[in-house]
């Protein structure tokens, strides 16, 4: 069980680092947004892996609830950032 947890937590940490790298390196807004979303997915993945307690034990529901609220907040932040980007593009065209 600890090996599974370690594998998935390591995977989540790698996702977080990959997203952070892409966020710092790539300038376009859309690529930065994908990078931030991958970073968020890495954080959620770490939380889900910590909540996992073996295939026969019920998992910890508290991190699950945190991740559920996190997913909805992430999509609303993405929508807001895209709206900002669209408005900036429109102002550039003028």
């Amino acid at each position: 069980m600890i090996a599974t947890q370690l594998l998935y937590v390591g995977c989540g940490i790698l996702l977080l680092i990959l997203g952070l790298w892409s966020f710092l390196v790539h300038p376009p807004l859309l690529r930065k947004l994908i990078a931030i979303n991958v970073m968020g997915a890495g954080v959620f993945h770490i939380l889900v892996a910590i909540a996992y307690r073996g295939i026969d034990t019920p998992p910890d529901p508290v991190p699950h609830a945190l991740v559920l609220t996190g997913i909805v907040v992430a999509v609303s932040a993405t929508a807001l950032a895209l709206a900002f980007g669209q408005r900036l593009d429109r102002d550039d065209d003028r």
Binding site: P58, P61, V62, H64, A65, L66, L68, T69, V72, V73, S76
Partner: peptide
């Protein structure tokens, strides 16, 4: 269990999340 955490134990969290 997840619904009970979301709407009972940690209801403030969910309220603020809807506000966000």
């Amino acid at each position: 269990p997840v619904t009970s955490v979301l709407l009972n134990y940690r209801a403030y969290d969910t309220l603020l999340e809807l506000a966000v």
